[in-house]
């Protein structure tokens, strides 16, 4: 028995969500009195791989086969399942990222494992059961999902588990899985990344704006505030429906669910569908000219006033604070 964690990288570098998932998997392994192995697929430098030891991985399997350089769902799932078998791992942990959402279900089927998607806490293992808290109803509630199978797969929501450091360098081992041609029917032709943009699902601070902003031409001040805070930008559904902002910024029940440390809502009324996607934010700030806006009922801090006056002032105040700290 052991725990296996799949570690995602972007162009050879691990990011915070990877450290979260390794820290989480290490705590799961501790709970089960077993060790943690990580598996990385693609080109990642040795020292980057061994640095995962800091977060608790004793060993890192590195798959650097040319064929597996770009992400193919089916092939990656086969590799992860094969590694789990080789390591005798009966718990596999992944991030509930866009990539994890494609992989985890395939890995689970291959291992005949129950899958809990969107975990937000460590498993409870009292009385021989294995139960994991996860988000359901788009963040309107949580479930305790019990995994009844021998093998188990868990995908962890970003920003839901603290990064723990303390371990030392991990031992890196090259792993050469068997590959099957029928796994490579899909091909990645291109990857387009907006540089310098903070990724919304993983962001620690989110600055979000709604229809109160009147039009796309007014988003400059939202971006200025986001830049000052190092935040990602987001919006309400009508804003992306109207084409003022891209779809991938739409937050809520039918958009992205986020759980940042700080969510700042500007000119958003606070409809139930919007709140569903942001309710697990740690701190919420609402800025709205209507003192009766429903957002103030869920916010921790509020300012009643005109966004066009307040946002530039707030940006200045953030810059002043950053200059002094």
């Amino acid at each position: 028995m052991s725990v296996l964690v799949y570690v995602e990288h972007a162009e050879g570098k691990f990011k915070k969500s990877t450290f979260e998932v390794v820290s989480y998997a290490k705590s799961v392994a501790d709970k089960l009195n077993t060790g943690l192995t990580a598996i990385s697929i693609g080109t990642v430098a040795q020292d980057e791989l061994s640095s995962l030891g800091k977060y608790g991985a004793a060993k890192v399997l590195s798959v650097s086969a040319e064929k597996l350089k770009s992400f193919v769902n089916q092939a990656y799932a086969s590799v992860i399942a094969e590694a789990a078998k080789k390591e005798g791992a009966n718990v596999v942990v992944l991030s509930n990222s866009f990539t994890g959402k494609g992989l985890a279900p395939r890995v689970a089927v291959k291992l005949q494992a129950g899958l809990v998607a969107g975990a937000v806490a460590l498993p409870e293992t009292d009385g021989g059961k294995f139960s994991v808290k996860n988000t359901v109803f788009s963040g309107k509630a949580f479930a305790f999902t019990q995994l009844d199978s021998e093998n188990k797969v868990i995908s962890l929501n970003p920003n839901s588990y603290q990064v723990n450091e303390g371990g030392s360098a991990a031992q890196v081992e090259e792993f050469q899985p068997a590959t099957n041609d029928s796994d490579f029917k899909a091909m990645v032709k291109d990857i387009v990344r907006a540089s310098n943009k903070v990724s919304l699902p993983e962001a620690e601070i989110v600055v979000s704006a709604g229809r109160g902003l009147k039009g796309p031409e007014n988003w400059g001040m939202i971006e200025d505030l986001a830049n000052a805070l190092g935040a990602a930008t987001a919006c309400s559904k009508p804003v992306s429906d109207a084409g003022w902002r891209p779809h991938e910024e739409h937050v809520g029940q039918t958009g992205i669910s986020v759980s940042p440390n700080l969510y700042i809502a500007i000119g958003i009324s606070g409809a139930i569908q919007h709140l569903a996607g942001i309710s697990s934010s740690k701190v919420i700030v609402a800025i709205n000219k209507d003192p009766e806006a429903p957002f103030f009922k869920v916010a921790d801090y509020g300012i009643v006033g005109d966004a066009f006056e307040i946002v530039p002032k707030l940006t200045e105040a953030v810059k002043a604070y950053k200059a002094n700290n």
């Binding site: 899958l115 808290k133 949580f142 999902t145």
Partner: peptide, 10 residues
């Protein structure tokens, strides 16, 4: 392979 034992609201 899974079952929900209980729910919780935030």
């Amino acid at each position: 392979l899974t079952s929900i034992s209980s729910f919780e609201t935030p």
